[in-house]
Amino acid sequence: MEALYAITVGMLTACSIYLILRGRSFPIVIGITMLSYAVNLFLFSTGRLVLNQLPIIGNQESYTDPLPQALVLTAIVIGFAMTAYSIILAVRVRGELGTDEVNDPSPVDDEGQR
C-alpha cells in the first residue's frame, strides 16, 4: 500500500510539474492546484498510513497522528487562497495584456515562446 501511495504522489507531482512548465496561465494554475494536492498528500503521509484509527478520543486503543492532519487542513485552505489569487491574477493579466502567455512578450530566443 505504501508503494502505491508513493507512486500516486509521485505521479501527481510529475503531472503538475509538467503543467507548471507550460507557457500559458491556465494550465499553470491547474498545475499549481494539483501540486498542492500532491504536497498535501505528502505532508499528510508524514503521519504514516493508518487505517480505522480516527484522531477522535473515544473507545479506541490507538489513534493516528493528528498533527499532520491539522497542518494539512490549514494547508488545504491556504492552498485554496493561493489558487484563487493566482487564477484572478491570470484573469487580470489577460484583461490588461490581452494574452494569457506567461513569458515576456519580447523574449530573446524562441524557446521562451510557449
Binding site: 505504501e2 507531482t13 512548465l21
Partner: peptide, 29 residues
C-alpha cells in the same frame, strides 16, 4: 524533468512511509 521530480518526490515519500514514525503528537492526544 517532470518525471525526474515526480520520481524523487515519490521515492522520498516511500522512504518516509516505510520508516517508523516518531511523533510529538502523544502530548496532543
Amino acid at each position: 524533468l517532470a518525471g525526474f521530480v515526480g520520481g524523487i518526490v515519490g521515492t522520498l515519500n516511500y522512504a518516509l512511509l516505510t520508516r517508523p514514525a516518531n511523533s510529538i503528537s502523544d502530548f496532543f492526544l
